[in-house]
């Protein structure tokens, strides 16, 4: 009986040594698995010319989304971009877009939502058009496009 108690107590005393996690291992895990998402938001006209753009980059991990909110006079676009690292080290990008758009003629407000996924390689750019793609028109309109690029978060790579 004493022997059994002694063995149990010994295991309890050395519990941290058996099950502890090294801080360096946690840092290394972050280093190897974090991702850098670069998003370039552009406003283009009907001829495809960029009239406005903004860059951003965020560090995240697989499964953690990055949200982009774009607010205009009559429009609000919220885009959630979630990268998932696949078994072959490619990325599955899941983009969820919501658009609230008002009409200039009336007080009507419309809501649209979509969810799209796209497999890409590390460093490969993807384009997301939350309002769709401009077809040939004869008036001046604008469109929004988001260019998304996912890279491994490597401080040596620089930007």
């Amino acid at each position: 009986m004493i022997k059994k108690i002694f063995v149990v107590v010994s295991l309890f005393l050395f519990h941290n040594l058996v099950y502890g996690v090294d801080i360096n291992d946690a840092l290394k895990y972050l280093e190897e698995n974090s991702l850098n998402i670069k998003i370039i938001t552009r406003v283009v006209d009907e001829q495809g010319l960029t009239i406005w753009n903004a860059n951003m980059s965020k560090i995240t991990i697989s499964g953690k989304s990055v949200k982009v909110k774009l607010q205009g006079v009559n429009i609000l676009v919220i885009t959630d971009i979630t990268p998932y690292i696949r078994y072959d080290n490619t990325i599955l990008l899941v983009s969820q877009g919501e658009v609230w758009i008002g009409s200039s003629e009336s007080d009507e407000m419309n809501h649209y939502s979509t969810i799209k996924s796209l497999p890409v390689s590390m460093g490969e750019s993807a384009l997301f058009f939350p309002l769709g793609v401009i077809k040939a028109v004869d008036r001046k309109i604008y469109n929004i496009e988001l260019e998304i690029q996912v890279n491994p978060n490597n401080r040596d790579s620089g930007e």
Partner: peptide, 27 residues
């Protein structure tokens, strides 16, 4: 702190829904 970024679009601009949202590779 959520991982989100807020941008103010230039205005006034006339944005119109062109069709179904598209998600594709740049190439």
């Amino acid at each position: 702190e959520p991982l989100e970024f807020y941008m103010q679009l230039p205005g006034p601009s006339d944005f119109v829904i062109q069709g179904e949202p598209i998600f594709l590779k740049k190439t």
